[in-house]
């Protein structure tokens, strides 16, 4: 029994990180309707900038927020240089997908040039002994990760539901053309959502850095996990993407009970493939399909 609780807690921690990655990714997907794979690399930029600011002995919260701000700004710059140009040329989604894979590798390798391929450790918190809950162990850092991701997702919910900007983003997500007709500054809303998505993603990178050493190529895995979570839940909906990501975290950690831990990655890739084939709209489409269409 204790065994299971430990795996559930581990699943919650992993899921929290995936959820933060997926939230930003899904927000960008919904306002732009293309798959921004480079988001994984953006997440890592957040982690590494946090590392740099932390070494400057900044306050940890300031370092985290600054890292997210700067990452968001950089991401927006890249957006203007690439995606925005593709939009102007009315390029198809396949081109955007290829471009986003190229961007992912570009940022990955720039990080590698700056920080090296070796693992970079951020010692933000002293290593402390874990606390015990019903026989399962959880460290304070892990509690922080869970709490921060919940707060972050809560703030995103408030932003999307109660603010003018959030409502505009949802209108753009709902119907791109129509939103322009009813007088929403569509392009600026898109830019803003890209910034917010990257900002959240960068904070995901900060959370990653609290828990494990940073490696540039980790971004590729993170985006595949975030993407998988989003597809499992339902990429068309930000909340569904978040739920799917927590689910993925649980599935991965529970699978370790039955399979060698290396198979974690096979399981999530396999799930991604199966969902894309059988239900590209994820669980959301499976359960709510009838209500949505026809």
């Amino acid at each position: 029994m204790e065994y299971y609780i430990q795996f559930m807690i581990n699943g919650l921690i992993t899921g929290s990180i995936y959820a933060v990655v997926a939230a930003g990714f899904s927000l960008i997907y919904n306002t732009h309707k293309f798959v921004h794979f480079a988001h994984g690399a953006v997440v890592m930029v957040g982690g590494y900038l946090f590392h740099t600011f932390f070494l400057l002995e900044w306050n940890i919260i300031v370092a985290a927020l600054m890292a997210a701000m700067v990452t968001g700004g950089l991401a927006l710059g890249l957006y203007q240089l690439t995606y925005a140009v593709f939009y102007k040329k009315r390029a198809g989604n396949v081109i955007l997908l290829m471009a986003s894979i190229a961007l992912l590798l570009l940022i990955n390798n720039v990080l590698q040039l700056f920080y090296g391929a070796q693992a970079t450790v951020v010692k933000a918190f002293p290593v402390t002994e874990g606390l015990e809950f019903w026989g399962a162990i959880i460290t304070p850092v892990q509690i922080i990760i869970i709490a921060v991701s919940l707060i972050l997702l809560g703030l995103l919910y408030i932003l999307m539901t109660y603010t003018q900007l959030g409502k505009m983003m949802r209108a753009v997500a709902d119907n791109d053309e129509l939103s322009l007709i009813i007088g929403i500054p569509r392009d600026n809303v898109k830019r803003f959502s890209f910034f917010i998505g990257s900002f959240i993603g960068a904070l995901g990178g900060v959370l990653v850095s609290l828990q494990e050493a940073l490696v540039p190529s980790r971004g590729t895995y993170l985006i595949i996990k975030g993407f998988t979570g989003a597809v499992i839940g339902g990429i068309e909906s930000v909340p569904a993407s978040i739920i799917g990501s927590y689910l993925l975290g649980f599935i991965e950690n529970i699978s370790i009970i039955y399979l060698p831990s290396d198979y974690k990655i096979t399981i999530s890739f396999g799930l991604l493939f199966l969902f894309l084939i059988f239900s590209p709209g994820g669980l959301y489409a499976l359960f709510f399909k009838d209500r949505v269409s026809k």
């Binding site: 471009a99 570009l106 390798n109």
Partner: peptide, 12 residues
């Protein structure tokens, strides 16, 4: 990494 950077930039 420079090789990869070069390729990604060329593709973009």
């Amino acid at each position: 990494p420079s090789r990869q950077i070069l390729y990604s930039i060329i593709l973009l």
